[in-house]
Design a binder for these strands. Structure first.
Lengths: 341, 341
DNA sequence: ATAGAAATGACAGCGCTGGTCATCTATTAG
DNA sequence: CTAATAGATGACCAGCGCTGTCATTTCTAT
């Protein structure tokens, strides 16, 4: 029924201490001893008692994922990736959706870490971009990895996984330019999310490179929501000089813009091209389907967790392969964008 | 830094065992002793060490949520509700997305329970409807709660939270009938999900009650996916006798049907009414927004977890209020359905 | 005053790790 | 081929922070 480390030890013909050494990847275990122990572990289907390990070693085998993101698809993908990595390394994942704007969010995060005695934490926007969160976590000495918008690895960002929104936004804008559009508008996401700023910068850079000065009236502030897209598109299409294309900061905004266009009887893509960002499932389910940029969120999450484990594991290979992953979302052309008509 | 039960004991002037009694809601603690201990706990901000508790008591303070559902919104809502209840009761939630069709799914579930030493499990469709899963869980003596489709509580379903899909589907169909539709088609979800069957039954019952014999050609098998809706609607609109309304088994299918109608230049709701089910966020983001039925998933999940804790907690009030919750999704009328034109 | 119940405490031990040595086994230099 | 050295392993113990068991104390009702 219940297999303990003692059973493994006697089955393998070694001491319980040696089994412990194997379990914890300690050095000074000969190859064949290691194999013997592993065989016994497999044969008996030994599963170490996490509670006992935690208690004795005063470390823990669970990491936390803190998020506040209205995008369910994004969250689910992140969870998937984190879980994959956790299973591989024998860790557990504790999810913690919460409100980033809560006044005592820092305390809440600290409580979570201490209450659950987490080995580490993974942060996505907006948490990954809140300096006081990072400071607090550093102060209590907890490992954490941030997934943030950025293109250039640097030592300061050693615990970050970068997503190059700038370059991806540049590519999308370029795609619109190549279709012949010159009056391209941009619907921003939340200002707090640096991804919005990065995407805007990529958009502006692409225009500038083409010798087009970005028109301030074409840049509409907003948030990462359907409603924001509805409002933004309406505002744009009421301008005396209307854009011929809209680049929305994410698919949800783009879907809102599409909705708005429908209300105003504007044909997509004939009268107006619309592009999104993220490749969330419903970008395929709008009519017409959205041109967008695909972010490999599951893989991003996996890498983030791997990075965390590298930092957090005592006996693992610390130094090597500590290169920072940078992901560039890929352009995905669908029917919502077309040659200017 | 680290407050242990010893600190609380000496601060309160009682033995460590008494503190333990208070922590575990054991009887035989006098009121004033209890208060003293509670005061000490608060003063010192004591947080019990879960690992030590697990180890000593051989029980655990985490429950698992096993799911295989492509609907991210549903999953996120369920997680929310479960987490709410977990926080309230001091439990942790381990999520476990997996593939319900995997051949050794039963073993996988058992492994999960034993590996993580779970106190209990929450199952949603399709897992909640797989008899061999329930059997296996009963055999290893683990508590679990199922969220299933149904309308009548019964002792056999004592560990279930019921969602009355039948009645909700009846209401939606009735809504279409009241708008004057008589040729109403039904797009099914996956056969494995009993919700699909229940909704179909509700649809048929409503028709029958109105004296309409359900037309077999109007009942299209399918699955809970956008693509299925696309295909189903296409098939229906190619019939010589077309329906004037489509009731899709969920919003995603309905969105697919909408998409299909758009492709065929069919105006919604003027030429064809479409209704969905679930009230997922994108049912508001289609054009036109979908008439649907709202399922209070967060609350459902909370209730499920509460039910689980009632069963799993040793010293809690076991018998009382063991009534089974039944939820009836509410009709939500939006622009995708209208009087027959 | 005394039985009986209720409240409390003393103590062992959950399964594992970390530390300290002592012992044993390979490898290498001489 | 042996001695010296480093590496591998085991024996042993304490203890992580808590709970279960059972003995003891304190209360309550007669």
């Amino acid at each position: 029924m219940k297999v303990t480390i003692n059973d493994v030890a006697s089955h393998a013909g070694v001491s319980i201490k040696t089994v412990s050494r194997v379990m914890n990847n300690e050095p000074s275990v000969r190859k064949d001893t290691y194999d013997k122990v592993m065989a016994a572990i497999t044969a008996l289907q030994y599963q170490p008692n996490a509670a006992a390990r935690n208690l004795a070693s005063n470390r823990s085998f669970s990491i936390g994922y803190i998020y506040d993101n209205p995008n369910a698809y994004y969250v689910i993908d992140m969870q998937r990736g984190l879980l994959d990595a956790c299973r591989k390394h024998g860790y557990e994942l504790l999810i913690h959706p919460t409100n980033a704007k809560s006044p005592d969010i820092v305390q809440e995060v600290i409580d979570l870490v201490q209450q659950s005695r987490l080995a580490g934490l993974v942060l996505t926007p907006p948490f990954s971009e809140m300096p006081h969160i990072a400071e607090a976590l550093e102060k209590i000495g907890v490992h954490f990895v941030r997934i943030i918008s950025g293109s250039t690895p640097s030592p300061k960002l050693s615990n970050c996984v970068l997503v190059d929104d700038f370059t991806a936004a540049f590519k999308i804008t370029n795609h619109l330019l190549e279709l012949g559009h010159t009056d391209i508008a941009f619907l921003c996401g939340d200002e707090e999310h640096s991804s919005s700023g990065e995407r805007l910068a990529g958009y502006q850079a692409a225009l500038t490179k083409r010798g087009i000065t970005p028109n301030p009236k074409f840049i509409v502030p907003g948030s990462y929501s359907f409603e924001s897209g509805v409002k933004g598109a309406k505002q744009l299409m009421n301008l005396s000089k209307k854009p011929s294309a809209i680049f929305a900061c994410n698919d949800e905004i783009a879907a809102g813009a599409l909705f708005s266009a429908r209300l105003m009887n504007i044909a997509i893509p004939q009268q107006l091209a619309i592009a999104g960002f993220e490749n969330s499932p419903f970008s395929r389910q709008t009519w017409p389907p959205l041109t967008t940029a695909h972010q490999p969120n599951v893989t991003i999450a996996q890498q983030a967790a791997e990075l965390l484990f590298r930092h957090a594991k005592p006996n693992a290979s610390k130094m090597l392969s500590d290169k920072q992953p940078v992901f560039i979302p890929e352009l995905l052309v669908r029917e919502s964008t077309a040659v200017i008509g």
